[in-house]
Design a protein around this nucleic acid. Structure first.
Lengths: 253, 253
DNA sequence: CAGTGGTCTAGACCACTTA
DNA sequence: AAGTGGTCTAGACCACTGA
């Protein structure tokens, strides 16, 4: 039951009570919560009020609802740790990029689809690639799947000057991928920088990545620099926040 | 107006229309949306339906509502880029840790409060620190503020074996901080690994960090290893997803 | 078929902001 | 005082799931 005189809104009291029951294990991961009608009686509030409470828990990522079935405590997803260390030249020579090899080694059947197009650089792109705003760029749009499920979105952009006449402007970049073709063309990669952030997905991203309510995306922008410090490529990646974790390692001195 | 026969729920149609008006600039960052009553008339739906639509936009982080004032398009926060490269011994020798120096250089008045306590390692901690579950650990709980506002939460954990008799068990660890004291005690740090993820905040975190609806937190778990590869410390950090971006750099080979 | 969540309405009253 | 969002009700009907 809710305390009417406390000043705390009823739906928050209900949410707090359910949240506490979840964290103390009264409801375990995978368990079904009482139905909305049952909660209505238990707390003596109207159904919209119960739904407000459940909505709150959904946007916190604590529960998911399934139409016709019930509301369930969201079990933690199995987290893939992605170590950022295997972009070395040696590893690249062997395959078509980190993703395919990685997925295969985990027992997934990986697949990717790629679209290539050409655009003009906007402010952000121009800044990362150290080119003029409006300069022509090559854009490679990638959707990565594991067992048919979309697990990662990636958009790679390069100044067109570096890609003209190379397989980078083709859908199939060939053995070793984009980075290998850059080096074929004499652009030797010396350094990577990744910028990592998080935000809520757009509705499009949420449906593509099949994200439940209350699951953010991790955004990674990787910029590849030549040995002289010239930006060669930027790659915007989007990952499901509940399924991926990025690991970075460096030496103390 | 909404299309009643389309099968798409009315509140989604309203949300989609408002979302589109935000992304195309009909409403710019900082602009006030029409009031809920006005939207009720414009789309010919009830107020709860309008509120459902606005709630959706709030949990996407697109708008914020202010009681008594209105609903506003959320302006992008200024993003602080944190480069993970300044944990070098040289830099540490000069100050009390990266945060204080960093904030000061940006013109903020930084402050931190620390609590020290002792606990037993749970599964996750035991795994990261390569110790037995239940082993005694020293926990340093830190709240970091810039101009009085909480900007970061950090919980540092070390096997108690490494901290007994050192200033790490005191609130003030002295010049150079925890890492310097570890090295005083003969534990030389050789390597760092950071694990980065994202999730929605708990209500506690949201109020501490003053997060708006629809803003995730970035979680960083940094583990410091000795030169022999022994885990010395793990540090769980929580940052506001709309204000921070982490940058990592490494060489191609 | 019964039970579940999903959508929607037409109100009511409250709390807060601004003028 | 007027206008805003915040809370809450008591229904109704729909869509989906599973026995």
């Amino acid at each position: 039951m809710v305390d009417r005189r406390s000043g705390v809104p009823a739906f928050r009291q209900v949410a707090a009570d359910l949240r506490q029951k979840i964290s103390t294990g009264t409801y375990s991961p995978g368990d079904q919560l009482p139905s909305e009608r049952e909660l209505t009686e238990a707390y003596d509030v109207s159904r919209p009020t119960v739904r407000d409470a459940i909505n709150m828990l959904k946007s916190e990522g604590l529960v998911t609802s399934e139409h016709g079935r019930g509301v369930f405590v969201r079990p933690p997803a199995t987290i893939q740790r992605i170590a950022r260390a295997r972009l070395s030249r040696a590893a690249r020579a062997q395959n078509k990029g980190a993703f395919l090899a990685d997925a295969a080694s985990r027992g997934f059947t990986p697949s990717t689809s790629v679209k290539v197009r050409f655009e003009q650089a906007d402010v952000r792109v121009a800044e990362h690639l150290a080119i003029e705003e409006g300069a022509e760029i090559t854009v490679r749009d990638r959707v990565m799947r594991a067992d048919g499920l979309v697990v990662q979105l990636a958009v790679s952009r390069l100044p067109r000057d570096f890609t003209r006449g190379t397989a980078i402007e083709e859908v199939d970049t060939g053995n070793g991928g984009t980075y290998a073709r850059l080096e074929d063309a004499g652009q030797v990669i010396g350094r990577f920088i990744e910028h990592v952030g998080a935000r809520m997905p757009t509705p499009d991203e949420a449906s593509l990545l099949q994200l439940a309510d209350g699951v953010p995306v991790v955004t990674v922008t990787r910029v590849a620099y030549s040995t002289e410090g010239k930006p060669l490529e930027m790659n915007d990646m989007i990952l499901a926040g509940d399924r991926y974790e990025l690991s970075y390692e460096w030496l103390a001195d």
